[in-house]
């Protein structure tokens, strides 16, 4: 994965966390992982489609999530209910959205999907042949880990879903016997 894709996400995360929960962020050690991700208590998954494509995941422990959401929404959360999940998803949405705006400034246009929230730790999430860059962001509320499995294509080139289809050929005119 191209390292130029990393900074927009880190900058966006730092800015959004500063604005939303007024916390300073310390970046931990960046690592590159090829194996699948073992989920933390809560993972927000957002796909990117366009000139930059792939998946971004924000993982954290339950307490971190509750602390962040309580601060963002201005009310105390003690469990990961649907409102808390939705708050966390929105945070992922805002960070990813801001990062894609930075990409567009450099000529790479992409759009983000609706967020999906996965709860339950110890589950494997595989991005298949996309290696992931893993960036832990330490805040006073706990650690938010950003996982980026992204690639780029040339700006303006059409998005081609078949690009990923290497093993099975979709029948163009299906015949059902």
């Amino acid at each position: 994965m191209d390292a130029k894709l990393l900074n927009p996400f880190i900058q966006a995360a730092v800015e959004v966390l500063k604005a939303e929960v007024d916390t300073d962020v310390t970046r931990g050690e960046i690592s590159m992982q090829k194996s699948s991700l073992t989920s933390d208590d809560i993972t927000v998954l957002i796909n990117l489609v366009g000139d930059v494509y792939g998946v971004v995941m924000y993982g954290m422990q339950k307490n971190t999530c509750l602390n962040l959401v309580s601060k963002i929404m201005g009310q105390e959360f003690t469990e990961l209910n649907s409102l808390a999940q939705s708050g966390m998803a929105e945070l992922g949405n805002v960070i990813s959205g801001r990062a894609t705006i930075r990409f567009s400034e450099t000529g790479y246009k992409s759009n983000i999907s609706t967020p999906t929230v996965l709860t339950g730790n110890g589950i494997e999430i595989s991005t298949l042949d996309f290696p992931r860059i893993v960036v832990p962001l330490e805040t006073q509320f706990g650690i938010l880990t950003v996982h980026l499995a992204l690639r780029t294509k040339n700006p303006g080139e059409p998005h081609n879903p078949d690009e990923f289809i290497s093993l099975i050929k979709a029948p163009l005119s299906p015949k059902v016997s």
């Binding site: 699948s36 989920s39 998954l45 796909n47 990117l48 489609v49 366009g50 494509y53 792939g54 998946v55 759009n111 999907s113 996965l118 709860t119 339950g120 110890g122 589950i123 494997e124 999430i125 595989s126 991005t127 298949l128 996309f130 499995a149 998005h159 879903p161 990923f164």
Partner: peptide
């Protein structure tokens, strides 16, 4: 447009 697939392995999440 469709995104790249992600695979989740593990029951009960």
């Amino acid at each position: 447009n469709i995104s790249t697939p992600s695979l989740i392995i593990g029951k009960g999440a």
